[in-house]
Amino acid sequence: MPTPGPAVEIQQDEILTGEAVALDVQPVGYFLRAVGVLIDMVAGVALFLLLAAAASWAAGRNVLGGDLTSVFTIVVLVLVTVVIPTAVETATRGRSLGKLVIGARIVRTDGGAAGFRQAFIRALVGVFELWFTLGAVAGIVGAFTPRAERLGDLLAGTYSERTRTPKLPPEPPGVPPVLAGWAAVADVGRLPDRLARRIAQFVRQARDLEPAARTRTAMSLAAETRTFVAPVPAVDPETFLLGVVAVRRERELRALRGEDERAAALTAGVDVAPRGFPVR
Results as ranks from 00 to 15, higher is better:
V107Y: 10
V107G: 03
R108I: 07
D110K: 02
G112E: 12
G115H: 07
F116V: 09
F116E: 05
F116A: 07
R117L: 01
Q118G: 04
Q118M: 01
I121C: 02
R122P: 08
A123H: 05
V125A: 09
G126E: 02
G126P: 01
V127N: 07
V127F: 06
F128I: 14
E129H: 00
T133A: 04
L134I: 11
L134W: 14
L134P: 00
L134E: 12
L134D: 00
G135F: 10
A136D: 01
A136V: 14
V137W: 07
A138I: 08
G139A: 14
I140V: 15
G142M: 04
G142Q: 03
G142L: 07
A143V: 00
A143E: 00
F144T: 11
R150S: 02
G152P: 03
D153P: 00
L154S: 05
L155C: 07
A156P: 06
G157S: 03
T158F: 09
T158R: 09
S160V: 15
S160Q: 08
S160G: 05
E161F: 10
E161Q: 14
E161C: 02
R162T: 14
P166E: 07
P166H: 05
L168M: 14
P170Y: 06
P170G: 07
P170W: 03
E171T: 15
P172G: 03
P172V: 11
P172Y: 13
P172L: 14
P173R: 11
G174Y: 15
P176K: 03
V178I: 13
V178K: 09
G181C: 08
G181W: 03
A184L: 15
A184P: 06
A184E: 12
V185R: 11
A186S: 06
V188W: 01
G189Q: 11
R190L: 15
D193L: 12
R194C: 00
L195M: 05
A196D: 08
R197G: 13
R197N: 10
R197W: 00
R197L: 13
R197M: 10
R198Q: 14
R198G: 08
I199L: 06
I199W: 09
Q201C: 02
F202A: 04
V203Y: 07
R204M: 08
Q205C: 09
Q205R: 15
A206K: 11
D208R: 13
